[in-house]
Design a binder for these strands. Structure first.
Lengths: 205, 205
DNA sequence: GTAGTCATGTAAGAGGTTACATGATTAG
DNA sequence: CTAATCATGTAACCTCTTACATGACTAC
């Protein structure tokens, strides 16, 4: 149940509406946890019902309104509980590794497309994460700025250090995935060469 | 729907019962895809109903019987379709990175326990994966041996190369996670030191 | 006879995906 | 007045988890 805790954690920075949260979960928060509106809105309702959030209904224009959520005492307790409990590590279940393990069932060309997709996906996110890390280091991220307000300098440094630690983990992961995809593409080239010219492949190995 | 394709892929090695599959999904197959019996048995039923698997009911002892599943023509087609279609990459959703990003809500001691758990988990699996890679290289894995039977030498080499590629990806991933957890533990030490002796920390930075 | 293995599930519920639905407000 | 943005969902479906349930067979 991480979505719930991600919502609690974001709401510690400032009270906000479901719409605001949806934007963050499409923006910077999506760099560690993504969630669609159809999941966020009902979850906020449930959390408010369970007393983890306080709600203020604010008028907007003539007829419309919005619900401003803020974290309650109970919500803070729950957040602390989550932060202090060890979350058990889960067994592996990686669909891309699974496909790779059975690549003999694919054409070389299609296998290559999958690995290129893999490489490009992580290259894209690597660039995003790197930019985010720079922005965090320069304290240029709006949500982070709100979170740092009114904290001591030491607290600010610690908060920033944890964010950097988390996203540097994503960066290292992305780099490992890119390297893996490239090794796979190299392997496919070797296999193709070996299939096309058996003698040369024999000599090469 | 990867479980279905993992089952199809395993069944290309040889026909087997649900019980056999449960064992493999707790053993070597769990190194890329784990699944509990409560998921495997109903899925096999559905796959047989949909014509992806053939079933032979075999007597065992006086009263009991077992269902032997083998992959059908349709199943092979489905496996090929899966192998040749590009599986779109999913957005990030990593609960441990999420916890790390909000570690300011945890006590240092509990944060450390989480990271130690992370480190130990991946050290354990790293050892497992390394042993498996050795066993694959030596063609010592029973399921793999059955899979290689009756294949040409080149086909065998390719199949082995894909397995190695997949599991070496897991190894690289585990190594990255271990390094990340250790960096985190170092960070926690620094923070603790800074909290205990502010002057020294100031001088150090 | 009893422990371990072989064999196969059910049931309830959590969490997530995909597609769709609706209407107010605001900036130009 | 029109497009973009603000705002909030529902519904159907799928996957996976957790806990529990049952009984036959085999080696000792």
């Amino acid at each position: 149940m991480s979505l719930r805790h991600a919502l609690l954690a974001v709401l510690t920075a400032a009270p906000m509406s479901g719409y605001d949260l949806v934007k963050y979960f499409n923006g910077t928060v999506a760099f560690v946890w993504n969630a669609p509106p159809s999941q966020i809105y009902p979850e906020l309702r449930r959390m408010a019902e369970e007393g983890l959030l306080d709600v203020e209904v604010v008028a907007r224009g003539q007829r419309a309104s919005k619900r401003l959520y803020s974290i309650s005492e109970n919500g803070l307790e729950e957040l602390n509980r989550w932060a202090n409990d060890v979350l058990p590590l889960q067994p592996t279940r990686d669909p891309y590794r699974l496909k790779a393990a059975y690549m003999e069932w694919a054409d070389i060309r299609e296998a290559r497309r999958q690995l290129e997709e893999h490489e490009h996906h992580y290259e894209y996110w690597l660039a995003q994460w790197r930019r985010l890390v720079d922005d965090i280091r320069a304290r240029r991220v709006p949500l982070l700025r709100r979170r740092l307000e009114g904290r001591t300098e030491r607290e600010q440094d610690e908060i920033v250090a944890f964010k950097l630690f988390a996203f540097e983990g994503e960066i290292a992961h992305a780099e490992a995935e890119i390297a893996w995809a490239r090794r796979g593409l190299g392997l496919l080239d070797e296999i193709e060469t070996a299939r096309e010219s058996p003698r040369q492949a024999d000599r090469a190995s």
